[in-house]
Design a binder for these strands. Structure first.
Lengths: 137, 137
DNA sequence: TATACAAATGCAACAATATTGCAAGTATGA
DNA sequence: TCATACTTGCAATATTGTTGCATTTGTATA
């Protein structure tokens, strides 16, 4: 529930934040700033930028950057309770080549990658292919 | 050699392009547009943007977008001979948490990931940790 | 080697996206 | 309910990238 998410992340509950959060909840896939602007009615763009920034910093949403300049955002997993922009997820980011939508897809466990001279702490996977909905068509 | 790379990718050899390409060759790690601008002397910003765009389209360099950071670019693998912005690499993108630099690191083979309802064609891995140089310190 | 032509450059104007400072309004804990 | 720190909304400004167009330049070809 919207109020709870905001409260948990120690963000003040304001009408605007609830409105923006609602848009994220309604969307199964990741959305861009533009998508949000379209969904909102009349609004102040600066406030939106700041809202997005605090949502990211407090772990409400996370940024997804896919190759080719697509910057989108999606709700964080409930486990992602880290403050200060440190996010912890167990999913990969998937972009469908047909519908272009970006999804966060759960995986049981992320694969292990070893490098020779580099020590890996965290890993993020971005995949492209065909999504659930488009496979059925 | 600079001229060869440009010729192979069917790009005209101009002084400006050689200069920009040289900057990529000199850098072991990925660089941003800003980095390039700093390395160049007096120059035209528009021409640089167009140069970058044709380098990407012809497979001379590729873009790397790490979460929460500026866009960077690095030379493509020699195998990456695809035109029209289709890139094919066998490396992962690694950002060091200490020095913040981004590297393309070769791997023998990329791990296999299977998803339930999504069909994966291509995959890209972004990792964070400690780089070669910083491990030694 | 000269030349014709497509490609690249450089300038001006413009467009989109994001940030900062500040005054006014508002949520929340005491 | 009140004080205060947080949030909002506006103006101004910064950053990043694009388009159109006249001029210059690289390169294939005669």
């Amino acid at each position: 529930m919207k109020e709870n998410i905001l409260k948990e992340k120690r963000l003040r509950i304001t009408p605007f934040r609830k409105e923006v959060l609602q848009i994220f909840i309604e969307n199964e896939h990741a959305i861009s700033t533009q998508d949000i602007e379209r969904s909102l009615g009349e609004h102040d763009r600066i406030t939106l930028y700041r809202t997005i920034k605090s949502f990211i910093n407090k772990g409400v949403i996370h940024e997804i950057v896919m190759p080719g300049d697509v910057k989108k955002m999606a709700l964080c997993d409930p486990v992602c309770s880290h403050d200060d922009g440190l996010h912890e997820h167990n999913h990969i980011h998937f972009q469908c080549k047909k519908c272009e939508e970006v999804y966060c897809v759960e995986v049981d466990k992320l694969p292990n990658v070893k490098l020779h001279d580099f020590e890996i702490d965290e890993m993020e996977i971005q995949a492209r292919g065909t999504c659930k909905a488009c496979l059925k068509m």
